[in-house]
Nucleic acid binder design. Sequence first.
DNA 1: AACACAAATGGACCGTAGTCCGCTAATCGT
DNA 2: ACGATTAGCGGACTACGGTCCATTTGTGTT
Lengths: 161, 161
Amino acid sequence: MLEPVRHERADATRNRATILEAAERLVGEQGAQTVTMDQIACAAGVGKGTLFRHFGDRCGLMRALLDERERAFQEDFIRGPAPLGPGAPPRERLVAFGERMLEHIEIQGDLLVAAENGAPGERLRHSVYAAYRAHVTAVLQGTGYAGDIGYLADVLLGALV
Amino acid sequence: MLEPVRHERADATRNRATILEAAERLVGEQGAQTVTMDQIACAAGVGKGTLFRHFGDRCGLMRALLDERERAFQEDFIRGPAPLGPGAPPRERLVAFGERMLEHIEIQGDLLVAAENGAPGERLRHSVYAAYRAHVTAVLQGTGYAGDIGYLADVLLGALV
DNA sequence: AACACAAATGGACCGTAGTCCGCTAATCGT
DNA sequence: ACGATTAGCGGACTACGGTCCATTTGTGTT
């Protein structure tokens, strides 16, 4: 009973990708704070309207960028190459994870700010944190640590996030 | 050894007051989120430049407004009429304080958001909180409560702020 | 009272986020 | 292959925050 799924037009999909690439590049070059929507639109070779049609507003675009990087990061430590991914001994994996996480936060810092809308201050934090915690907990299983693993995971993450 | 204190010109003082009045009124009428700097300048009968000269930026103006109300609020419970001010039995004063505080927060809500600049999320909170705490602690002295008064004050305030 | 000078003013001006709507071209039924 | 339909496009336009600077005005001095 397939619904007659209204496809998104091919050019729209293509444009979304192009915009994200351009934004990614520009944010990398000059930081999330100073990059303007016009710059991005121009660099992507699309009109401003298209930007806003796809991402709603500036924050929406920044969030999309953030999600992308977050996915890539998680991919790395879940299925990527050792020592970050599976294969290395647990201790090494944890160290690699810690280092990578610090980089991750360092790099994402201004994007996080740019993705803020009004008051809240944290939003996706929770679902994201859960993923980190699950990962650290899992790796800790392999260390033979005797205490409360969930608690240790929180302590370790607390120092980072 | 008086420094040759450079006075602020009289018209400047007058203008600052006028601007604050206008801003106060407009924020009351339509909320801090939607009020614009042009509106305020116009309502105050001054140029936009004057607004920014006095308050730096939008957040600065909102903070000034906030401070004003905060002062009025504190004045009320320190020296104002009972039951909020001195005179009423401690329990009644505390209840009055709680109610007034809730109103206060309710009303200040959007101003607080408008006064935010970037990431932080709290700034004046501390000095302001100290004032509240001092007050509640002082009033609690009169209740004959046996436990740790400072702690109780924090618990009570924690539920509100 | 007249002057000199800094403080203060105001509004033209700029850059950016976000909206709007007439036009273009991708998609689909025939 | 060929319209008909309409999602999607793009860029002119609006609104707002913030800057700048030529001009005005208050103030202390002579």
